[in-house]
Amino acid sequence: MRILVIGGNGMLGHSVVEKLRALGHEVVVGGRHNADVDVDISSPESIREMYEAVPNLDHVISTAGQTTAMPLADMKPEDNDLSVQSKLLGQVNLVLIGQHYLKDNGSFTLTTGVKKDDPIAGGASAAMANGGITAFVKSAAIDLERGLRINSISPNIVEESFEQQKEIFMGFTPVPLSKVSDAFVKSVVGKQTGQEYKIYS
């Protein structure tokens, strides 16, 4: 299968890419830097150009999306816009636009995160975006046509980045990166739709 992984140069995305390639799939990496195809998911036009440049896709995975991390008391509407335009609307638009490009019986797999279920200080903006994606996936699953599927993955903080972020995730039990990337493989090669795979332990 031909699979596009947006954010495939990041830690999580790279792990997903490696697992899929090991299974024999053709994987195209999308991103803003050093990718096979350039894309800025905060721009609908950039998303359209990406799909035009990479035809005959079976599946699309997003491990991309920026969010704002700051205390609520300091946050202004424009600060929150990053989470809205990138993590939330960016991933939604990958589906809204991409549904017209994917092959029959293809799929979308989006990324959320633990902050929406287990809040941390300064995480309100990210939690909002993650919760919005979760609700969108559940509802979009019943509307997608041509056998298209959609799921989301909600990972905990991973072991490989815990040391750098342990101050804000104090008390959390990190999970192996490999376990999170396995969930993406399950979403792509399986038949489920409208699901949220929570990898919290």
Rank of each mutant, 00 (worst) to 15 (best):
A53Q: 11
L23M: 14
M128A: 15
P71K: 14
V28C: 04
I61V: 15
K103F: 02
I97S: 12
S86M: 05
T68V: 08
N34Y: 00
M70N: 07
A53D: 05
Y101N: 09
Q85W: 02
A64D: 06
G132W: 07
V39N: 05
L23C: 03
G90K: 06
S83N: 01
E26H: 12
G113P: 01
A35M: 01
Q85G: 04
D79C: 04
L57A: 09
G113W: 06
A124F: 07
T109L: 08
H33K: 14
A69Q: 11
Q99A: 11
A129K: 00
K115P: 00
V39G: 03
V114N: 00
A124H: 10
Y51C: 12
Q66T: 09
H100I: 03
G90H: 04
T68E: 13
I41Y: 01
G106I: 06
Y101I: 11
D38E: 14
L110H: 10
S42W: 01
D38N: 11
A69K: 09
S83T: 08
A35C: 07
S46G: 07
D104K: 15
S62F: 02
Y51W: 12
K115Q: 13
E49W: 00
A121D: 09
V114H: 03
S62M: 04
L72V: 15
R21C: 05
L102S: 10
R32P: 00
V27A: 09
M75I: 06
N80I: 13
Q66M: 12
S125Q: 12
L94P: 05
R21L: 02
L94Q: 11
V114R: 12
A73L: 13
V29S: 00
D40M: 06
H59Q: 02
R21K: 15
G106Q: 07
N93T: 03
V37G: 03
S62Y: 05
D58Q: 14
A35I: 04
P71G: 08
Q99K: 15
V60N: 05
L72R: 01
G31A: 06
S43V: 04
